[in-house]
Amino acid sequence: MKRGYGAADYAFLLFNYGFLFLLGCLTLYPFLNLLAISLNDSIDSVRGGIYLWPRDFTIGNYRAIFQTDNLVAATLVSLARTLIGTFLSVLCTTMLAYTISRRGFVLRKALNLILIMSMYVNGGLIPYYLLIKNLHMTNSFWVYIIPGLIGAFNVIIIRSYFEQLPDGLGESARIDGASDFAVLFRILVPLSMPVLATITLFVSVGHWNSWFDNYLFNSKQNLSTLQYELMKILLKSVQQVSTDAARSGKVDRAVANTLTPQSIRASMTILVTAPILFVYPFMQRYFIKGITVGALKE
């Protein structure tokens, strides 16, 4: 017999929806604010006062960004690195996580320890740089993929999830002669969609947003990532280099399309965040109730 909705329930629902709505507004504000600024004339934005709506509408900020050379190429590079990097990383991470989730695995304790400790130690930038250099990975696409292939944190999260799945699943399959690969990919993975989707999200966002490895290792233009190119655009506006427009504030005609750092930051954030906002809802379907564990009766 299912309980019907009582008064307390309605009170809670009211509170919940209300609270979540408020929270949504509060967290949406920065984004709307940035959107407004990015669509506002940059010189007009200087004096502040833009909150949710542009005061002097223009698409000039975006136009200026899109007119940058190399932006398309950089987007492709970022796309390639995100797709390839995420796929490989999630694949390898999952395999590793599977192994250390198996109770009888000989290396289980050792690998666990190594993994966890690795999250808290850092040798510094110079040795890391020298390592990459010695591996001849500087100025290459693979420096984006390989060093970051295994994220210890991700491994542990997936491992923990696997450990919580009933033991019997794997056991019965192995008794039937299935290989570890089969157990992992045919049985465990389909049941782990929520956590795998989460890790995929984390890794892909990391790839999409990264520019630091670009700064460190790659100087060739054709290896620039999107974020790196956008950073360049930001830097262009911040640098006060000795040109006429920069030195004097007294130029007569208002210089059209001057990009202030504030406007660029706003537009950059929108450009980088928007794709993620589109992708995430598609991933959300994996967060809905997972497949029922029906293979075993406990």
Binding site: M119, F153, G206, N209, S210, L234
Partner: peptide, 20 residues
């Protein structure tokens, strides 16, 4: 928590902010 590279990126994002 994010992978190591991401932590490094926060550090340098800051460095960028500072130098910028």
């Amino acid at each position: 928590r994010k992978p190591l590279l991401a932590m490094l990126s926060v550090v340098t994002a800051a460095a960028l902010a500072i130098s910028g």
